[in-house]
């Protein structure tokens, strides 16, 4: 801790040390740039628990570490499609989230999700979606369907940008073609491949970075995008006097949701539960949302969120829009996806 003394943690530590109930530690392992320092500070102040934060950058990294037997973490934050894997492989503890006092704050929509139906293992955290964003000022009309992205009109050919990895784009194709996710039917996957190959000549880049740059400088007119990132892009575009809109095509957007879980190897289980309950409070989740730029599952958290975020169309799903959640595919379906993607990019 001495090394970290320059950081905000110390301030709270000194504060916490003076408190009567100062006790214990909590080691959080979360995504990079995803944990609000203000929220952690508040937690330390209120509970006297000292928080240490470590970060990772992908679900695969987290899973690989947990499978390799990493210890010392009390809270991990996998995405919904990985949550069943942790449960099935016995990597996490049963916590009975539904019995926690603050669980009543969770919006109906996020309670008892498919990936943890009895809410025994995971606390709902941020959620988001993947779709496409576009430049209405250059496109000239509203984007209504993925068809406009996969089979682009003359004027946007060569100005389409696509994600670098297949997870979301293959699911977008499934949505457009009206097929089920994690498809194991080679004939249906063939159609996905044909669609992606037909789109390829019109694609300028397959990249999951710099979408906002490409849209704002006009290199791309339609680009695959994530809602939280598109929200930041819209603010940047407005500054430059341009328009950037995150689209809700009629086929639906691909949803993801992260959950807090306690690994089997956790040492501070009680503190982890205190944190889980803490984050389901509207104010705390609101503060956290402001930092991460993503929406959360807590009723009334909007009151504590920055105005621009609270009213952001990227965060607030329109009533008529559909959100479809994806799952981690089994080995057969995954290998079909890999083959399609390799055939598209080879």
């Amino acid at each position: 801790m001495k090394i970290k003394s320059m950081l905000w943690t110390t301030v709270t530590l000194t504060f916490a040390a003076g408190m009567a109930f100062a006790e214990g530690k909590l080691n959080i392992y979360n995504w990079t740039d995803y944990t609000s320092p203000e929220m952690i500070e508040k937690f330390e102040k209120e509970t006297g628990i000292e928080v240490t934060l470590d970060t990772y950058d992908s679900n695969e990294t987290l899973l690989a570490k947990m499978q390799a037997g990493a210890t010392g973490y009390d809270i991990i934050v996998p995405s919904h499609n990985f949550i069943p894997i942790y449960i099935a492989e016995g990597l996490v503890q049963e916590v009975d989230v539904a019995a926690m006092p603050n669980f009543q704050n969770v919006k109906e929509r996020w309670r008892n999700p498919e990936w943890d139906p009895e809410q025994k293992y995971s606390v709902p955290f941020h959620w988001g979606s993947a779709s496409v964003a576009y430049r209405p000022d250059l496109y000239g009309k509203k984007l209504e369907s993925y068809g406009e992205f996969f089979e682009p009109a003359e004027e946007v050919r060569g100005r389409i940008s696509v994600f670098k990895t297949p997870e979301e784009i293959v699911n977008h194709a499934h949505l457009y073609l009206g097929q089920k996710f994690c498809n194991e039917d080679p004939a249906e996957m063939q159609k996905v491949q044909d669609l992606l190959l037909a789109q390829k000549p019109y694609v300028m880049a397959y990249s999951s970075e710099g979408m906002n740059d490409r849209l704002i400088n006009g290199d791309a007119i339609i680009s695959n995008h994530w809602n939280g990132y598109a929200y930041k892009g819209r603010l940047l575009a407005e500054e430059a006097g341009k328009e950037l809109v995150y689209a809700y095509p009629k086929e639906g957007v691909i949803g993801w949701a992260d959950g807090l879980m306690i690994p089997k190897s956790a040492e501070n289980v009680e503190n982890a539960k205190i944190f889980m309950n803490f984050i389901m409070d509207p104010e705390n989740m609101g503060i956290q949302s402001n930092f991460a730029g993503y929406g959360g599952p807590i009723e009334g958290q909007e009151a504590f969120m920055d105005e621009s975020l609270r009213n952001a169309p990227e965060i607030n799903i329109p009533d008529d829009a559909t959100v479809v959640f994806s799952f981690a595919c089994n080995a057969d379906a995954q290998s079909l996806i890999d083959r399609v993607w390799t055939n598209v990019l080879r």
Partner: peptide, 24 residues
Amino acid sequence: DLLGGGKNLMLGTLVQFQFSTARN
């Protein structure tokens, strides 16, 4: 990836892809 737009796979990208997304 950055300058070519990642339109065609290269050996380096292919290796990276196998260890991350493809999990092979």
